[in-house]
Write a protein that binds this DNA or RNA. Structure first.
Lengths: 233, 233
DNA sequence: CATGAAATTATGTATGCACATAATAGACAT
DNA sequence: ATGTCTATTATGTGCATACATAATTTCATG
């Protein structure tokens, strides 16, 4: 190989990526160690380290001290989706975004939601049902529980110009949560609101959001039929 | 602040993360520049850079030369899923993995698949239908098109001990593709194979895989009802 | 031969320095 | 005011060096 022109870490990364994808270095195989690559590429070891670290994070390489670096045998393929911020998603398509709050009341959540929010029984919290529309067509139906004990300000929030989702994003910091994608069969309620037939297949996103140990909100978004989540690998 | 004990980049990152999540540094706000933080934390600027770079990649910080670093206003929340390798997924739950190939023939793909595979019309390629089972219960139904012109070896592959998916992962390198999640309504065929009622809602993953400019395969996985994709944020 | 201590080795992290690059801010001229 | 050039500044990258850490290999010892 003996390259002569000095390489930036990006160039090194590209070459290494090429060696992997063309199977010059085969899955499971040990690749030259950093010092050697540094010499081949005519750069410092730190530069090679920078390049390889990135590939390891991406799951293409397995690195272990002393053992060396090898091409991942069965690369865990990961897909990264950006979680939709509905207003941006709709406006990004050049459509008119709007929403309508159907329901807003204090209510004792059912047991499964209680568990998700780590609440003890009998406590009533804020419950909201919101329909998002794109060009006045139903886009997604949101059912949301907000732990109003953890976020008392929410009770006096005005959701007329800012949806509950955006209000929370703006007012409440968060540091964790979880996220589930599933397919659900439209109930009568969902069918009516989304303007589809009862029994239609809808993509559903369930999400909880937490901050400082407390679970702030639990939300389900049921999208109109035909909605897709897409990403490149 | 004036910390006295020297910090590793991870410790710096944790502290910065804390400042963000506790809104000591508010969304949109400019944070101290690297040199200043380095002094505060008692470490080199490179160490601070390492810490902040990671947070920027994670989407918590926006960094621009000269302009400085600020807390992301509307952090694009990203969810990362590991794409299921069905055998591992099933065996990981302690269940018995198996699969059965229903169909394996050369066939001219319909127009939409032709487009996805960037094929010109009239060319027939390999088409496969496979059912994956967990403890003998239907788990997912796979319909797959393989560009057998790009991968001629596939025609002589023996799929008895290795599923088409795993055969491809092992034999054909890849460097890109795309990935779509949607909800579908079970057709009569899918219902029959998966043992659910026709019209049931199923989670579907559509995926294409490419290598060196060519599209290698296009596959749809329809999961049994109740299947979920889950991740932590 | 088994066992565990010690040498070896590849990656991981930290530092100080230098220079590159992008973007702003300010000076200046039209 | 408006546009253009220039200086300034924060981040981005690279290098040489040093030491830390984890894991393997070697080797002495019972």
């Amino acid at each position: 190989m003996t390259e002569e022109d000095r390489k930036t870490w990006q160039a090194v990364q590209d070459e290494v990526r090429r060696c992997i994808s063309q199977r010059i270095w085969k899955p499971g195989e040990l690749i030259p160690h950093e010092a050697e690559l540094a010499q081949q590429f005519g750069c410092a070891r730190a530069t090679v380290n920078r390049a390889l670290r990135g590939l390891a994070e991406a799951g293409l390489l397995d690195r272990r001290r002393k053992a060396g670096t090898r091409v991942t045998l069965n690369p865990v393929r990961r897909a990264e989706f950006s979680i939709p911020v509905i207003r941006e998603e709709i406006e990004g398509k050049g459509q008119r975004y709007d929403y309508k709050i159907f329901l807003r009341e204090m209510r004792v959540p059912p047991p499964d939601v209680q568990a998700r929010l780590q609440l003890s029984g009998g406590i009533s919290i804020l419950y909201l049902q919101t329909l998002y529309t794109a060009d006045n067509l139903p886009y997604a139906f949101e059912t949301r529980w907000i732990n109003s004990n953890a976020v008392p300000d929410v009770l006096s929030a005005d959701f007329r110009s800012l949806s509950p989702n955006e209000w929370l994003v703006r007012e409440v910091p968060f540091d964790g949560g979880d996220f589930t994608v599933s397919a659900l069969t439209a109930t009568e309620k969902e069918a009516g609101v989304l303007g589809c037939s009862q029994g239609a297949s809808l993509l559903a996103l369930d999400r909880t959001t937490q901050h400082d140990g407390q679970i702030i909100t639990s939300v389900r978004l049921a999208f109109h039929p035909g909605y897709r989540m897409h990403t490149r690998l």
